[in-house]
Amino acid sequence: MLSAEGLTHAFGSPPVRALDGISFRLESGRTLAVFGPNGAGKTTLLKVLAGLIRPQAGHAHVQGGRRAIGWIGHQSHLYSHLTVRENLLFWASLYGVPEPQRGARADDLMQRLGLGDRATQPVAALSRGLVQRAAIARALVHEPGVLLLDEPFTGLDLAAAGEFRRLIAELARGGRAVVLATHNVDEGVELATEIAFLHRGRFVEVAPRGARGPAEIAAAYRRAVAGG
């Protein structure tokens, strides 16, 4: 479970508001898709939720703290000259996974994500799609209860993006709270149980997805962004 109350943050001088009074609550097993154009404040919102940026006003709460957060972005946070397995073991150690469990957990994730035969390859030798799978494994190695996804489909081809969507849906069904931030409505709409439109740092609309289809949501997004 995670919640945010009145998150406000500005950058630069003169200050430009990246977040302006963002509030929401997301229960476990639910997926909030935050749609917004470039510069709307999506990444800032996720970084505030993750504790990477301290907001100038308001507060965010993630049940379980930083240890409970898994982050997947368009950057993998992986070291290119380490193997996939070495990367996973390193991140597992930082997240406090007990040493005897690290190897088994890394091997299990690599098997599940189709990286079993790539375990001893350096990340630099992997394709973009495989790097993203390795990044997912990195984000899951400590079994987080909350997943923060920042434009996670960037650079993935159609097949890899579809596979990634299936995996995220499976993880959400497994009881994780997921926040997905993207500028592309088509990419995230299938996964969402809640929808938010972020424009100029404000939630123009936050609502359950309900029975709305992708076209309806895309039209609502265009209206919200144009009118926001």
């Binding site: 990477l52 930083r66 982050w71 946070h77 992986l78 991140w91 997240y95």
Partner: peptide
């Protein structure tokens, strides 16, 4: 410098460390 590749530094700052 080696933490800039793939923004690994952000990953380190996210970790509960």
């Amino acid at each position: 410098q080696l933490e800039l590749e793939n923004q690994a530094l952000d990953g380190l700052l996210l970790a509960p460390m």
